Computed example of a mutant assay.
Amino acid sequence: MLNNEHRRYLLDLARRSIAYGLSHHTPLPVDLANLPPELRRLAACFVTLEKDGDLRGCVGMLQAERPLAEDVADNAYAAAFADHRFAPLAADELDRLDIHISILGEPSAMAVASQQELIAQLRPGVDGLILQEGGRRATFLPSVWESLPDPRQFVERLQQKGGWPRDYWSPQFKAYRYETEQFP
Rank of each mutant, 00 (worst) to 15 (best):
Y77E: 02
L55N: 01
R152F: 01
L42S: 15
L68R: 03
K174Q: 15
A113M: 09
R41H: 15
N34F: 07
D167E: 12
G134L: 07
E65Y: 03
G134D: 07
Q160H: 14
L32H: 07
A120T: 13
A76V: 08
T180G: 01
D74S: 13
A120N: 12
Y77A: 00
L131T: 07
P37H: 13
N4R: 05
G57E: 00
W164N: 07
M110R: 12
A64F: 08
A109N: 08
P36M: 05
H100N: 01
L10S: 04
L49F: 03
V144R: 04
A76W: 09
D71A: 15
R66S: 09
P151N: 04
Q115S: 10
I119D: 02
V155P: 06
T26M: 11
P184E: 06
A80P: 01
L32F: 08
S23L: 10
V155I: 07
H25I: 07
R16F: 05
R166K: 13
F46W: 04
E181K: 00
S143I: 11
V155A: 06
K51A: 13
W145T: 04
L35V: 09
Y168W: 15
L10E: 06
E38Y: 09
K51V: 12
Q160K: 10
Y20W: 14
L148E: 05
H24W: 10
T180W: 02
P67R: 03
K51C: 09
R41Y: 15
P67Y: 05
A79C: 04
R16W: 10
N4S: 10
A43C: 12
A175N: 06
I18C: 01
D83A: 08
V72D: 07
F154D: 02
M1E: 06
E70I: 10
F46H: 03
R136Y: 12
D95Y: 00
Y168F: 15
A90D: 13
V59C: 02
D52W: 02
L32P: 06
Q160M: 10
Q153K: 02
A120D: 12
L89F: 11
C58Q: 04
K174T: 14
E181G: 01
P67F: 08
S23K: 13
D31N: 14
D127Y: 00
A69R: 00
G135S: 13
Y176C: 05
A175R: 03
Q115Y: 01
L55H: 02
K174Y: 06
V144E: 03
A87W: 08
L148H: 12
A82H: 14
L39Y: 10
D71G: 13
P27N: 07
F81W: 08
P36A: 08
P107N: 12
L148G: 05
E65R: 08
E106K: 14
